[in-house]
């Protein structure tokens, strides 16, 4: 099994997804199966191969430096689960 319970917990923590104790084994098994399956890529020798850099050959788009002076605070706060005045609000963070 590629992904043991500790690994599952570690990546779940990195991904900020709570996994309940009764789910750990299941997740570990499913994730291991998928990882086992994608291992078939090891059949391909890629020593001399560069990773793909551009999907389609098109020039990149850039933007200029002119600021848009519109105040979007209404728009961005509109859907916020918790806000006070013009701030987003979250549980207290201790540094």
């Amino acid at each position: 099994m590629k992904i043991d319970k500790n690994t599952t917990l570690k990546i779940a923590r990195l991904a900020r997804i709570k996994i309940n104790n009764n789910e750990i084994a299941d997740y570990s098994k499913q994730l291991s199966n998928i990882i086992d399956w994608v291992q078939q890529l090891n059949e391909v020798n890629t020593d001399q191969i560069e990773p793909l850099k551009k999907i389609v050959e098109i020039p990149a788009t850039f933007k200029g430096d002119e600021p848009e002076l519109k105040d979007y605070s209404q728009d961005i706060l509109e859907n916020a689960p918790e806000k006070i005045e013009n701030y987003f609000v979250v549980p207290k963070v201790v540094e």
Partner: peptide, 19 residues
Amino acid sequence: NSSTKFGLKPNTQVSLVDA
């Protein structure tokens, strides 16, 4: 395209992209 001006009212220089 949001402005970079310093010290304005909170969340007033935040585009949809920045948020």
